[in-house]
Design a protein around this nucleic acid. Sequence first.
DNA 1: CCATTCTCTGAACTCTCGTTCATTTTTCAA
DNA 2: TTGAAAAATGAACGAGAGTTCAGAGAATGG
Lengths: 210, 210
Amino acid sequence: MNESSENGKISRKEREFLMRRNEIMAAAMRLFAGKGFHNTTMSEIAKEAEFSTGSLYNFFKSKEALYLTLLREEIEKIEADVRVRKDQAKGPAEKLEAVVDSLIDYFEANRDFFKIFSMHQDHFEWPMKGELAQVVRAKYLSFIAELVEVFKQGIAQGAFKAHEPEELALCFMGVMNSFLFLWIETEPKGTLREKKPVILDIFYRGSAKG
Amino acid sequence: MNESSENGKISRKEREFLMRRNEIMAAAMRLFAGKGFHNTTMSEIAKEAEFSTGSLYNFFKSKEALYLTLLREEIEKIEADVRVRKDQAKGPAEKLEAVVDSLIDYFEANRDFFKIFSMHQDHFEWPMKGELAQVVRAKYLSFIAELVEVFKQGIAQGAFKAHEPEELALCFMGVMNSFLFLWIETEPKGTLREKKPVILDIFYRGSAKG
DNA sequence: CCATTCTCTGAACTCTCGTTCATTTTTCAA
DNA sequence: TTGAAAAATGAACGAGAGTTCAGAGAATGG
């Protein structure tokens, strides 16, 4: 009755439901990014999304579910784009560059999500122990795992030094993160994209001169 | 009456007060490191420190104050040691190496604090808007500022590439952090110290081969 | 040994949310 | 137009946690 059984079409009802669901998630993202999970209340989200408190529970069964759904879906978007571009690229260096491109594009379009994203990278206060949290954690780890794979290949093909692939992957995210952080902090001063050469140079060739 | 007026001596009372205060902070550190600020309750801290809930308020005026005091004092310890060793070193590369040494020593002796520390590196917006929070933030920024100074000198003397000193400092912390993170995650597998050459190699010479 | 002061205690208080649900409003097919 | 189903509402509820405080217990000094 709800599902437009079998075929991919969805009814207007369903479309509208998803629209409203997205409104709520967008409002929640703004607030979570600004104040974190614990300092954002459901009624604030409701007000921001122009719904009543109770209505939120027609879309998400709890605050935690709302948060984790948001996180999971957004990571999936990033991951999907990263994977596509990475797989299209040929060599290891090209693949890594594709990852950088993808991340830059995503975060230039979704500033707010960076804060939420990086909160979870560093295990910023870890509120939730439920099943959903595990799913999100798994998602993030699979994202890292793909990076690790790139480095494994890269090492095998002699493009990268023979360090631990995990170490290289984490360091790469560390450098990437540093630039994301600086870019977020210094608001509208320059684009993230123009930092791409610097990011790659530091990560590939290091900081020492000569 | 409390202060041993003027001279540096402190009474036994005061010493005992400080001992108990440290007990509480140590207990709090363990719990905050494990579960974060919001998921650690005052009664848990009290139990861990073998005090009653109410007693904590003889030492700290609030949970927030306890947390921020802990954070501030620990950052000060790190900062002090980093500064001493850095200032003793001659050239920019030696200074940076001294910083690495200092951080490695500190965190090998204080595993727990890493999680708390890294929580605060990227996320300044937090529940707390009080004066203490500002102090902690200032402390952390002054720590970064010293790093930036090292890089400024290093660039001027031709030891580092002419990137933005802030970018180099943040990237350095990013790489350092990645190794700290891996080390913490993989529990007792190897020491942090033995990673020093890798850390420096990646940061100085990058990840690309040849 | 007593009196006073300091310290500890933990139950009670309070306040803040997340969540629920009876009621109202809207939707939409007949 | 109408009435039943779906959606929205927001006041009320309840659980959890930070904080307080009146009384109990130690420590100190005369």
